[in-house]
Amino acid sequence: MGILEVKGVNKRFGGLQALGNVNLSVAENTVHAIIGPNGAGKSTLLNVLVGKLIPDSGTVTFDGQSVLGRKPHEINQMGISRVFQTPEIFGDLTVMENVLIPCFAKRDGSFRLHAFEQVANESLIIETAEQMLIDVNMQDKRHMHAGNLSRGDKRRLEMAMCLVQQPRLLLLDEPTAGMARADTNNTIDLLKEIKAKRDITMAIIEHDMHVVFSLAERITVLAQGTPLVEDIPSRIKGHPKVQEAYLGTTAHA
């Protein structure tokens, strides 16, 4: 049984069946990619996983606990972190503060009125955050305003913010969307590095086949809201059903 289990999930938007009977199992410590053409329901599925959308039917469990009906912050506290398509960071804060916030969230839970303790005295947390910045090679930018970073650095920072919480599952929503080839390769290297360094499960939703095949250990192909196939990368590549979904070479095309 996987750490993340999606069973029989359906989601309708009016007349559109966005997700139809989706079953998915992400095994612990693997990189699982979810791919599919535009409109296949990838984003809807992700939004269900993070508690943003509640499906019409079906169950989603993380480590045996249902995630349905929980708020995003509760789901994060369960151990699921999310990287967005466009990096979501605290642009008005410094890079260091950006990494400190998830550290505090991890230690203190979703709310704590620590109004009289001083950040400067939290040496343990500062050390953790600094180590994380070294890991993603951003230590020399720690006093910069995060909003002034380059796009690639914003992506690195966002990943650092997720990883510093040591999540059990990292959800990545098209982490290389809109990136130049060089940046894409950097991101791939970063993710590989992360994977090599720690035990982490990743679920990647991605368009870019280059990224998917460089990282994924298992791939699920979605089309029109239903999983077509799930297999290891080498067998996905030449799979006739996948070719059909992407290229539409059958009679009804």
Partner: peptide, 12 residues
């Protein structure tokens, strides 16, 4: 700065 990131960071 960013309420969205805040809630996805586990903060209410």
């Amino acid at each position: 700065s960013n309420q969205n990131r805040m809630s996805y960071t586990g903060l209410n």
